[in-house]
Simulated assay, not measured.
Amino acid sequence: MRKKTVRRKPSVRYTKKKTTFFYGKLLRFSIVFLSIAFLFLALYHYRSGLAYYFSFKTDKVLSEKAESKRLSDIRNHQVLNSIEGKSVGIDVSEYQGDIKWSYVDTLENQFPIHFVLIRATVGNDRLDRSFEKNWLGAKKNKMIRGAYHYYRPNENSLEQAALFIKTVHLKKGDMPPVLDIEKLPKNQSIERLKIGLKRWLEKIEAHYKVRPIIYTGEKYYDDFLKEEFSEYLFWIANYNFYREKIESDWLFWQFTERGSVPGIKGNVDVNIFNGDLQQLQFITVE
Rank of each mutant, 00 (worst) to 15 (best):
L50T: 03
Y52E: 00
F56D: 01
K57P: 07
K60Y: 13
S63F: 05
E64K: 14
E64A: 12
E67I: 15
K69H: 15
K69Y: 08
L71T: 09
S72G: 08
S72Q: 13
I74L: 15
I74K: 04
R75N: 15
N76G: 08
V79Y: 04
G85V: 10
S87P: 09
S87H: 10
V88T: 13
V92C: 07
E94F: 04
Y95W: 13
Y95Q: 15
Q96A: 01
D98Y: 11
D98S: 14
K100M: 12
S102G: 06
S102N: 14
S102F: 11
T106D: 11
T106P: 01
I113D: 06
H114E: 11
H114V: 10
I118G: 01
I118D: 04
A120S: 07
T121L: 01
G123I: 10
N124E: 13
D128Q: 02
R129P: 10
S130T: 09
S130P: 00
K133T: 08
W135R: 02
K139H: 11
K140R: 13
K142N: 15
I144S: 06
R145Y: 03
Y148S: 01
H149L: 03
Y151A: 03
P153W: 13
E155Q: 12
N156T: 12
A162L: 13
L163T: 09
F164K: 10
